[in-house]
């Protein structure tokens, strides 16, 4: 059986609550599809050959932690960006998403450099953007709703309007609370503010990564998973948001 490796980047530093849910979800779904998946923790100063892994996952952390990670990733940027260009699946949440851009400017005015992979930047403001969020996204030509929870002080803006967002905000704040955009997409990379268990409640999104991983190994997935419970959870929170907005 083909073995898949998902690299969990800096779990000791970049790990907001619930991030583990995304990894549990990917691993389980791959098992259900009959694929073997290993989650590998990557720590600071650890060598990693990005061409030997099938996906990277990175969550958010505090400013201090993000600084440490930035310096470590800086040593790996060329190889990492080359892999992303060639379609390496990657999920970057909150702080990890911000790191993909050119800089993060805190509310107090200190500027932290980003990796500069994509034309976006983040500015911290007073008042965090918190709450359930509903966005509309598109996968394989189908419109799909994505639900999650956001909690971020940073406002992210695209400096190049051609950059693709993950989706359009229906309810909630998204990248900056102004332009209705949420997250970013590039090939098989997704950056987003939707933290915690994003994938379990959005099986389409989870399968986007699973299919991308399988595809890169030339595998075809035949099986169809029963997502009744996942879809019910999705609808429950979507309904709660939509009806809450009306009242």
């Amino acid at each position: 059986m083909e073995k898949f490796i998902i690299a969990h980047m800096y779990p000791a530093l970049m790990n907001l609550y619930g991030d583990r849910g995304n990894l549990v979800c990917l691993k389980k779904r791959m098992e259900w599809y009959g694929l073997n998946c290993e989650i590998k923790s990557i720590h600071l100063d650890e060598k990693l050959d990005f061409s030997q892994i099938d996906m990277i996952f990175m969550g958010g952390g505090s400013d201090r932690e993000q600084g440490l990670v930035y310096h470590d990733l800086l040593k790996k940027t060329d190889q990492l960006m080359a892999q992303i260009e060639s379609g390496l699946p990657a999920l970057c949440i909150c702080g990890a998403y911000q790191l993909l851009g050119s800089y993060y400017k805190s509310h107090e005015g200190t500027v932290m450099d980003g990796l500069g992979f994509f034309p976006l930047y983040t500015e911290g403001r007073e008042g965090r953007l918190i709450g359930n969020i509903l966005i509309e996204s598109e996968f394989n030509g189908q419109k799909v709703s994505v639900v999650g929870f956001e909690n971020h002080g940073g406002r992210t803006y695209f400096s190049d309007p051609k950059l693709q967002s993950l989706g359009q905000v229906i309810i909630g704040h998204g990248n900056n609370g102004e332009d209705q955009s949420e997250g970013m997409r590039f090939k098989n990379l997704i950056g987003t503010y939707l933290h915690g268990p994003l994938l379990p409640k959005n099986p389409t999104l989870a399968d986007f990564f699973v299919y991308a991983m399988a595809d890169r190994k030339g595998l075809k997935l035949e099986k169809v998973l029963d997502d009744t419970i996942e879809n019910l959870a999705h609808e429950q929170v979507r309904y709660k948001m939509i009806s809450g907005q009306k009242s």
Binding site: P197, I229, A233, Q236
Partner: peptide, 17 residues
């Protein structure tokens, strides 16, 4: 109110659906 989320969590623990 979030019975669905809890059920998803239980499912991904490996408990039989």
């Amino acid at each position: 109110q979030r019975s669905g989320d809890m059920a998803v969590r239980i499912k991904y623990s490996g408990f039989g659906i």
